[in-house]
């Protein structure tokens, strides 16, 4: 498979997943807004913080009001990680590999793009919650179509790696923000508001119901963190994503899991192995924020290794 083609399928999936997660962030915050007691100021700045682009936002918009943040993250075509920009990039990547992916996939990316573009032009705030659910649904539809219509070949596996690395990264950021930004006011711990916020956090990862089902009825910060980081079977937990990404990577190379023959396999395998054997107590001991921070860095390293190993090939004699 051409390196450029693999690269495009990887990013096509990554951008769609990114758009979905941004919609999740905003949707949950909009919900929280409705639940908050009057007088409690709504926090929108953490949302921008999760993206890592707070300085850019401050420079362009100044104050983190609901309207500014939503505009920035959703429809700002000059911000490369807004939902609109993600869809635009996803569509361009899909266009350049149209003869490789299924036509159903192309049609869904195209329809998704036009749905967001129309919303950006109409822009009536009344319809916003509906819009964000539609974005989530459209992303799920794309993933489903991909699974059901594209051969599960090398290209498909590169798409999986892109989607799973993005999802793991975004789950870690959702958790980080809540834990690092919202928790520290000690007087809030254990209050109704606090409980609502943890439920909102789980909901933003579609994890609330699944969390309840696994027998941990009570919602405590520790067990929520455990669920989102270490749960082996929940498809948005970091451990699950990393495990599945590793499987796809080894499907591509043919190397048995547990061994490695390139830097991507080594860094990803090491990360998976750490997540397999860590306990939540160890994580808390290091500090959840510090732990998530290093996790994000290690995932970036994996992304870089995938790029260098498969996409950025240079002939030896140049």
């Amino acid at each position: 498979m051409l390196s450029r083609v693999a690269d495009s399928i990887y990013w096509l999936n990554r951008y769609i997943e990114r758009a979905e997660n941004i919609a999740r962030f905003i949707d949950v915050n909009l919900n929280l807004l409705l639940d908050s007691p009057i007088g409690v100021t709504q926090q929108w700045e953490p949302l921008v913080l999760t993206t890592g682009d707070l300085p850019l936002f401050k420079e362009r918009y100044g104050e983190a009001t609901a309207e500014n943040v939503i505009r920035f993250l959703t429809f700002d075509s000059n911000y490369s990680n807004s939902i609109l920009s993600c869809l635009n990039s996803a569509r361009n990547n899909a266009r350049s590999v149209r003869e490789i992916i299924s036509s159903e996939m192309w049609q869904q990316v195209n329809a998704f793009y036009f749905m967001v573009k129309e919303a950006a032009q109409a822009d009536s705030p009344g319809q916003l919650p509906e819009f964000f659910s539609e974005v989530k649904l459209a992303s799920h539809l794309f993933a489903g179509i991909t699974n059901a219509t594209m051969t599960h070949n090398e290209g498909w596996h590169f798409g999986q790696i892109g989607r799973l690395l993005e999802r793991a990264d975004k789950t870690s950021r959702i958790l980080d923000v809540k834990y690092f930004i919202l928790l520290p006011s000690v007087k809030d711990v254990g209050t109704t508001l606090d409980d609502l916020q943890w439920i909102a956090l789980l909901r933003s990862a579609s994890a609330y119901e699944m969390y309840r089902k696994q027998g941990l009825h009570r919602i405590t910060p520790m067990s929520v963190a455990k669920f989102l980081v270490l749960e082996r079977e929940f498809p948005r937990s970091m451990r699950f994503c990393i495990q599945q990404a590793e499987r796809s990577l080894h499907e591509i190379t043919g190397t048995p899991i547990g061994t490695w023959c390139n830097p991507a396999e080594r860094t990803l395998g090491r990360l998976r192995s750490d997540l397999d054997y860590l306990t939540i107590d160890e994580i808390v001991h290091v500090g959840l924020h510090e732990f998530l921070d290093s996790l994000q860095q290690r995932m970036n390293e994996v992304g870089k290794n995938v790029f260098e190993t498969f996409f950025a090939l240079e002939p030896a004699n140049r």
Binding site: L2, R4, V5, R98, I252, F310, P315
Partner: peptide
């Protein structure tokens, strides 16, 4: 390209190496 089942390549996918035209693949 799709109808013939051949790769659709851009200039950046191709490189001259060892006296031959080659394409950059994941392998």
């Amino acid at each position: 390209a799709q109808q013939m089942g051949v790769e659709l390549v851009e200039g950046r996918d191709l490189v001259v190496s060892d006296g031959y035209l080659q394409m950059r693949t994941t392998k």
